[in-house]
């Protein structure tokens, strides 16, 4: 009755709401945890202590060099056709503007194709992208590549409609990538509301002028750590089931949803198993990644350090898509492994979370999955996720303690059972 015991403890027993309460204590104490910041450093120290005090084994920190970017003061003021102070958030890694800012006319486009067609108009202007929101993983291209594409046609800066499924005048930040040989121009996200308004103004033939000021700076890489804890396996201690979430966040809100929830249900999975006095046959390893938001920097370093042991990894698990009510598990692996995962998920019938979907993975486990290790990620109710993602709204208020408890139960049952099976998951 192991699965039932885990579910009872996590959802109905004394551990109910625990992952939520633990997360609230951390994020209320240190706030958001940007790569390279003092608050991320403090969060790692606190988590190291927490995991030790929880009685987990082999608690240690693995060093990683991570990007250090700070946004500084920033503002965007529309000067024509009327004065309007706009909300904005600079994008990770962006260069700043000169101290006096950049004052320029605006060119509004709705796609990269339109930018190409109107390339001669872009020179010396601020390009505003008002791309429609389709699905996140497509629309996010505008945030990532917007500055490069605008710079290629001679723009001075780019302002991108936030990649958000819903907006109450909320700018959403995120990472962007410059390209070698293309001038680095300042880039930021503005609100859906302002992007749409400027699009309407431009379509009426109005001249739009914006003064953009960004104090963003890039510093030398900072020292950081992936945080690791284990329950060492009883029979095959060298073999591993890895459960994970990332501890860093953007510098807005509290980073509670992205990815505090994922990190804390991963810790909770080990806590639940330990509290029940269980010890699986192979090692359950918790990894709290650093600098995921900058492109999986900590995860890449971990892969480089540990890939020699790849044959001993049975399953890698990552939760980085919210910890709302789970729908099931996304899984990548062989047909045989998928059939086994379906049986494992059948154990979650009491909480009705039994489905196995395709495309398990995520930024922090993709290196392992691409190399052939079975990978699983939590699939949950994403209805609210991209409304709050990378914005000031990512706080504990959006989290739900009961939903987190259910997610933790799923995470614990799957990781424990796979770690305790007599054989590793078969690969293709």
């Amino acid at each position: 009755d192991v699965a039932k015991a885990i579910i009872d403890l996590a959802v109905y027993g004394k551990a109910q709401n625990r992952s939520y309460e633990r997360l609230a204590l951390l994020v209320d104490t240190v706030g958001p945890r940007l790569s390279g910041s003092k608050s991320l450093e403090k969060a790692i120290q606190i988590m190291y202590q927490n995991l030790k005090e929880d009685g987990l084994e082999n608690v240690h920190l693995e060093p990683v060099k991570i990007p250090h970017w700070e946004r500084g003061e920033e503002s965007a003021v529309m000067l024509e056709p009327r004065v309007h102070r706009m909300a904005l958030l600079g994008l990770g890694g962006s260069v700043g503007t000169p101290p006096q800012g950049i004052t320029a006319e605006v060119l509004v486009v709705t796609s990269f194709d339109e930018l190409q067609r109107r390339a001669p108009e872009a020179k010396g202007k601020i390009v505003v992208y008002n791309q429609p929101y389709a699905i996140y993983f497509k629309t996010v291209e505008y945030r990532v590549r917007g500055a490069v594409e605008a710079a290629k046609v001679g723009a001075l800066a780019s302002l991108i409609r936030s990649v958000a499924s819903f907006s109450i005048y909320s700018p959403h930040t995120g990472v962007q990538e410059y390209q070698d040989g293309v001038p680095k121009i300042p880039t930021a996200c503005i609100t859906v509301e302002d992007a749409e308004m400027m699009s309407r103004m431009a379509s009426r033939g109005s001249r739009i002028v914006i003064q953009l000021k960004m104090g963003a700076k890039n510093y030398a890489d900072a020292d950081s750590f992936n945080t690791v804890a284990e329950i060492i396996g009883s029979k095959y201690p060298e073999q591993v089931v890895l459960v994970s979430g990332h501890l860093d966040s953007w510098d807005v809100g509290q980073g509670a949803m992205d990815d505090g929830g994922g990190a804390f249900i991963s810790w909770e999975a080990l806590s639940l198993i330990k509290d029940l006095g269980l010890r699986p046959k192979r090692t359950l390893r918790l990894v709290l990644w650093t600098a995921e938001e900058q492109g999986g920097i900590g995860a890449f370093q971990y892969y480089q350090s540990h890939k020699a042991n790849i044959s001993n990894y049975s399953l890698v698990m990552e939760s980085d898509g919210g910890t709302f009510l789970p729908y099931g598990l996304q899984f990548t692996g062989s047909d045989k492994a998928r059939a086994i995962m379906k049986e494992v998920m059948g154990l979650l019938q009491p909480i009705n979370v039994t489905r196995v979907f395709s495309d398990g993975g995520g930024t922090d486990i993709k290196f392992w999955v691409q190399a052939g290790v079975p990978g699983a990620s939590l699939l949950d109710d994403l209805y609210k996720y991209f409304s709050f993602h990378h914005s000031q709204g990512d706080t504990m208020t959006v989290m739900d303690p009961k939903e987190m408890s259910v997610a933790a139960a799923v995470w614990a049952v799957v990781s424990y059972v796979v770690a305790d099976l007599e054989e590793m998951l078969p690969r293709s």
Binding site: V2, I310, G346, A371, V417, D420, L421, E422
Partner: peptide, 24 residues
């Protein structure tokens, strides 16, 4: 370089299924 583990399962799917059911 990534090292792959050979697929060395000694058990049938039915046996694994029974093993998993045991955790229920």
């Amino acid at each position: 370089k990534a090292i792959y583990r050979n697929d060395t399962s000694q058990r049938t799917f039915e046996e694994i299924k029974e093993e998993i059911a045991h955790y229920g």
